[in-house]
Design a binder for these strands. Structure first.
Lengths: 217, 217
DNA sequence: ACCTGAACACCGTTCAAGT
DNA sequence: ACCTGAACACCGTTCAAGT
């Protein structure tokens, strides 16, 4: 049975098996997913160039699965709801995130979430260059927050040599996932407040510039 | 020469060798650093419990090396300068960051940078619970930004299926490290603006609460 | 206490061979 | 085109043995 009548494998089947292994154990191996699929390790290479491509396929699967906010709402509401959707999706596969961080992305794909965020920030009055930066910032917050989700509680509860301010802060800290959730909520609020203030400043600036020359505000 | 008169190895020597390997190649192996140190791989285990501990030692070495701002400046200035120092230190060893992200921290150590940030945010009027969240947020931005530094330019320049807003944003994007630097600067400014606004809101809130009862503002 | 040498179980990847 | 089987170079870790 060297060549089955119907192919057993496909890139997608391999990706799903790898993702299931990552969700369960935090990592995956070629022999591991081969055994899971009832196949020999070398067979995987017919459908996939190697381990790195499997990681990349998992990244694309994750990012393309994030729900996008409909455009009827205001831009900051859209950003907030998509940030939460992004985080919810990433948190569902939180053990995958360190793996994605370890491998550098080699795909030039722009996903639905990227486009929708660009539209929202653009609607918010950010300049094109700022739009990219804002997306990067939001990305950092989500990824960082989900990496934080993987950090054992012990890191934050044991605190030798903490100063007074740090000790007081640590005293308020509960276990995960509540801690990381709360930090994300606070961080997202900070960002949106900051973006709103910057967008407002932009409006004021252009108003100040245009006022002397003509009456259009 | 099974037991040298003077020990050849130490945890620190091993850590430095590993860090040098990571800086040069993006990863390290036990045989690799053993050869670098003129020793057999099994010898490393006399000073270190294994690969995971070496990663942890590198993490501690990185974090404890971040310069701390002196307290004479205002809190937001301190936060900004430490954020930049944090990023500068992390960027100097940018290939280490994915490795740190892949391994979950198991150390409960609070570093100088943590204490100084806690002090600064506390001075800024954030509540103790918010202090921890603010530190987490800043951490996410720095880590995310340095991970971004490792992303090849091709990811952002090739853009099939980008919408108008995204295409305009991508058109402004130059190569790394400038791109990631600019994104970090923008993100940091957004955060500080947001924190200032939130701190201000806190002041206003407590003012509103205290005014009816007595005259102290 | 510190390093060696041999050994173990494992990994990712290649490639000729079968259908 | 798709899977197998054998092979390769490599890895992290253990442990008895030497000084």
């Amino acid at each position: 049975m060297a060549r089955p009548a119907q192919p057993i494998l496909s890139a997608e089947i391999i990706t799903v098996a790898a993702l299931r292994a990552v969700d369960a154990t935090g990592d995956f191996t070629m022999p591991g997913i081969a055994k899971e699929l009832g196949v020999r390790p070398s067979s995987l290479y017919t459908h996939v160039s190697g381990r790195a491509e499997i990681v990349e396929l998992m990244r694309m699967r994750l990012l393309s699965g994030i729900p996008v906010a409909d455009e009827s709402q205001g831009w900051s509401k859209r950003v907030a709801s998509m940030a939460w959707e992004y985080r919810r999706t990433a948190a569902k596969h939180w053990r995958l995130i360190p793996l994605l961080a370890a491998h550098t992305a080699r795909t030039g794909a722009v996903f639905g979430i990227d486009n929708a965020l660009a539209q929202a920030f653009s609607d918010g009055g950010l300049a094109p260059a700022e739009v990219l930066h804002a997306i990067s910032t939001l990305d950092s917050l989500v990824i960082g927050s989900v990496l934080d989700l993987a950090t054992p509680d012990v890191v934050w509860t044991e605190a030798p040599n903490a100063n007074e301010a740090m000790a007081a802060a640590l005293a308020t800290s509960g276990p995960n996932p509540g801690r990381a959730d709360a930090a994300f909520e606070f961080g997202l609020r900070t960002l949106i407040t900051g973006w709103l203030a910057q967008a407002l400043t932009g409006v004021l600036d252009s108003a100040a510039i245009s006022v002397p020359g003509n009456a259009a505000v």
